[in-house]
Design a protein around this nucleic acid. Sequence first.
DNA 1: TCATTTTGTTAACAATTGGTTAAACCCTAA
DNA 2: TTAGGGTTTAACCAATTGTTAACAAAATGA
Lengths: 237, 237
Amino acid sequence: METENKKILLVEDDPNFGTVLKDYLIMNDYDVVHAKNGMEGFEKFKKDDYDMCILDVMMPYKDGFTLAKEIRDKNEDVPIIFLTAKAMKEDVLKGYKVGADDYLNKPFDSEVLLMKIQAIMQRKSTESVADSKQFEFTIGGFHLNSKLRFLTYKDEEAIKLSPKENELLRLLALHLNDLMPRELALTKIWRDDNYFTSRSMDVYIAKLRKYLKKDINVEILNIHGEGFRLVVRSDES
Amino acid sequence: METENKKILLVEDDPNFGTVLKDYLIMNDYDVVHAKNGMEGFEKFKKDDYDMCILDVMMPYKDGFTLAKEIRDKNEDVPIIFLTAKAMKEDVLKGYKVGADDYLNKPFDSEVLLMKIQAIMQRKSTESVADSKQFEFTIGGFHLNSKLRFLTYKDEEAIKLSPKENELLRLLALHLNDLMPRELALTKIWRDDNYFTSRSMDVYIAKLRKYLKKDINVEILNIHGEGFRLVVRSDES
DNA sequence: TCATTTTGTTAACAATTGGTTAAACCCTAA
DNA sequence: TTAGGGTTTAACCAATTGTTAACAAAATGA
């Protein structure tokens, strides 16, 4: 199943900063949903389960603390990190009363944020199951070992995959039979989303299709303008 | 379960800063011994077991790097964090092949130090301690005695291994059939990760491959950009 | 329909990484 | 001090990987 990455709800009204931060977190293997204001943030929180919330405090209409209280009402445990514009002790305290796990003064070092996230995730999941990354997949008649970067078909000799081939196929496998958005692969694997990286990705899709030809029931479909879909048909014909 | 506090050796010549830092660490549940100079630091290190050393680099008489080397002579594993002046660049630091676990530029955020300490402690505790005691391995038709540094194939005469050959093969054997990352060997055996140590490692891989040729089912495979994999095939044909 | 955008595929190229051999450079024990 | 094992560096070549160009095909929308 796709219990792969930790899911973070990022609520930040500054679109530039929010996007940069989102991409940075995605690059570091988190699934990020970005809400542009408190209202939207709460809606998105209700609609899904998150492993962590990162809330900007200074937001129009509904500030981060108010949002945090609403979130706490729904979920007592989800870790909350506040992003504050200045070092304000009162506000910080107010934040902790809501049950915040940490706070960060803007501007902050993104590495520090990452470390805080990791530390909190660790703390929260000390008793829960080890969150080991998923490295092995069965794709029709194929077996993908993503750690050792090879793909085997039945008893044939393993096909060695390049890092990009491997990551792309893994991402497709994580979304098996479902849409794997172009943008996701580009931000996670290429760490950049532009014309050339997109074309490069297409090249890799072609390479993967060549490998996957051996099993007639396995196919990578394109969803025009959206992304790709790795499908496995059950072979009754 | 109440676990004992981790013990930290802090070597810092500035009495004010040292005291503040010591108190801060104590407040965060570490046992701290504060030495005021390199000499004293080494004396205290010899007298007790520490879970971590935090060394100021800029110290009179004996600088942090020199002290670190002495400490490494006594103990290969204890984590070391250097406190350096802001001006120092990474290449300068890497010149000192000591095997530091982290660096911090003064002045630093004490919270960052705390997080780094926690991260390193965590890493060290999850590193399989059992590994450090395993010295005998069966690798296909070979037997490796890593303590006596020799490799035997069936009944043939033992091949004597040099220290580096031995450590490298042992590390590969510990990860039998699995990835042994380049970086791991370089940090554990060479204690430095740069172009030349990497090339040196390749030379040793070539030497080991030559030894292992006797058994056609044993092979060292490369995973481009990642590391090596010692594989043993079961010989059925 | 036609024009435009998006995708599919191949090939050329540059850049990086690995394999091997041999020589140079250490140490340290005799 | 030198001889010799152990290790690093150099040199050269091979393999791997990723990007881009070029052109073809498919999808889309006015």
